[in-house]
Simulated assay, not measured.
Amino acid sequence: MATPTKFKALVVEKTDDGQFVRKIRARCIDDLPQGDLVVRVSYSSLNYKDALSATGHPGVTRLFPHTPGIDAVGEVLSCESGAFAVGDTVVITGYDLGMETDGGWGELIRIPSSWAVRLPDGLTQAEAMALGTAGFTAALSVLKLERAGVTRSDGDVLVTGATGGVGTIAVAILARAGYRVVASTGKSADEQFLRNLGAAEIIPRDQVLAGSERPMMKERWAGCVDVVGGDTLAAVVKSTRYGGAVTCCGLVGSTELPVNVYPFILRGVSLIGIDSVKCPADIRLQVWEKLAEEWKPAHLQEMVTEVNLDGLEEKIAAILKGEISGRVVVRMTA
Rank of each mutant, 00 (worst) to 15 (best):
P68D: 06
I111W: 07
P58S: 09
D121V: 01
T61P: 00
G59Y: 07
G122Y: 08
I111P: 07
S114R: 14
V90Y: 08
A116K: 03
A134Q: 04
T124Q: 03
T133Y: 10
R152Q: 15
G106P: 08
G161C: 09
F84T: 02
A148G: 02
M99Q: 09
I70E: 15
T163G: 11
G103E: 02
V90S: 09
L108I: 09
R62Q: 05
G106E: 04
F64T: 00
G87Q: 08
E75N: 07
E100W: 03
G103I: 01
T67K: 05
D156W: 14
V150K: 07
D102K: 01
D156E: 15
T160A: 10
R110I: 01
Y95K: 14
I92H: 10
Q125D: 13
H66Q: 06
G56T: 00
L145N: 13
L131M: 09
M99I: 00
A130G: 14
C79W: 12
S153W: 02
E100S: 10
V60Y: 13
H66Y: 00
G94Q: 05
C79L: 05
S81I: 00
G59E: 03
G106Q: 10
M129W: 08
D102N: 08
G149T: 02
V90M: 08
L158Y: 09
V73H: 15
D154I: 02
R118P: 15
V157A: 11
V159S: 12
T61Q: 00
L119F: 14
L123H: 05
A148L: 01
E80A: 15
T67G: 09
E107C: 03
A130N: 06
A85Q: 15
M99Y: 02
